[in-house]
Design a protein around this nucleic acid. Structure first.
Lengths: 186, 186
DNA sequence: CGCCGAGTTGAACTGAATCAAGAAACGTGG
DNA sequence: CCACGTTTCTTGATTCAGTTCAACTCGGCG
């Protein structure tokens, strides 16, 4: 999937954005289990997943906590660095062999500072992220392990087939053993 | 608190935004327990809490689930309606007597369509919301009842003193009894 | 003064974590 | 292509945090 395919219709033909996509983005491949970005750094890249599967995670009490999965067509960035100027607490890791495109957020900011359509494109992207996060909060707030798993199947069946069980369990905030038991009884 | 006080410095003196704030916003008072906005409607207002305390909640299996508290200086909106064009599942309720300012999101969109600084202001607001939501997800994903409560005390001690226990418990995704026990042991 | 909603406390129950061990799948090198 | 070691997944037994249900206390308000 190409970045331009992920854009809303009215922005696909915008010349500022088109120029931006072709000039300012680099492509890179990552092997399975390779780290794309590491915690404690100021990484201001914005990544677009062209293909493959990536996760973000951090360590707490020595355990890996998976916070999100990113698949074809998703955008990925360290929002704690971009929006709060903190070194990020997250690692990005390729779960499958993956191809990503990326650019520095500063470039995007420069563009948004002069291009109205780009700024509105960026608003659109942020709005989508908020929608996804709202769903995720609602899943985590008041549901049983089984309900959370069923919701994930419904919203992102993809992940279930492609990510290892331990990472999925962590993403749902449950133990690996519990997830295994839930699977066996379905 | 006035809306203009909540803006980042560089936008306070912007004439587009200033005009917008003075012309397109209305003010309204709500009594304690009064509903500001109801579920199942297309309410495209964006609210700014001038003073007071408001919560959003929805019903699940007959129980009220509090999803967020809004205090002085916060912005509040039905993102499911704004970004996905769905009737909202949330109610907004004044917990204290509250004064809010509001405008229709369409007005803001109109402004963003022509004013670069407004679009970037909107981007800034959305970025802040994402930061908050990231924290909330991390709180809910893998923490005990006590940890969640302590984090809320740390991040928003305000709420603890002003909102009733049942609503706080629901916000944290725990039962009212558990929260009461946690309080007594601190 | 008595009611009513909000908060507290206790006891029993339960969903899920943890600990532990074994089975299956996976990939790497010979 | 097989053998081996490693990682991932499953299953069982036990424990524990948190829910539920129920009764009771407290403080405010008509």
């Amino acid at each position: 999937m190409e970045l331009i395919d992920a854009l809303p219709l009215n922005l696909k033909t915008n010349k500022d954005i088109e120029k931006f996509l072709s000039e300012d983005f680099q492509t890179k491949d990552f092997k399975k289990a390779e780290l794309i970005s590491k915690q404690d750094q100021y990484n201001r890249n914005v990544y677009f997943i062209k293909n493959g599967l990536v996760r973000s995670f951090y360590y707490e009490n020595g355990k890996e906590i998976t916070t999100k999965f990113y698949t074809e067509g998703n955008l990925m960035a360290n929002t704690d660095t971009l929006f709060q100027n903190n070194p990020t607490r997250y690692n990005f890791e390729a779960i499958e062999e993956s191809t990503v495109e990326f650019c520095n957020y500063a470039k995007l900011e420069e563009l948004c500072a002069v291009s109205l359509e780009s700024a509105n494109f960026s608003r659109f992207v942020l709005g989508n992220i908020i929608t996804q996060m709202t769903d995720r909060i609602s899943t985590l707030q008041f549901h049983t392990a089984k309900e959370k798993y069923l919701r994930l199947i419904h919203e992102n069946p993809n992940i279930i087939l492609r990510a290892p069980l331990g990472m999925i369990a962590s993403y749902l905030g449950i133990s690996q053993e519990t997830l295994s038991r839930i699977r066996s009884e379905i």
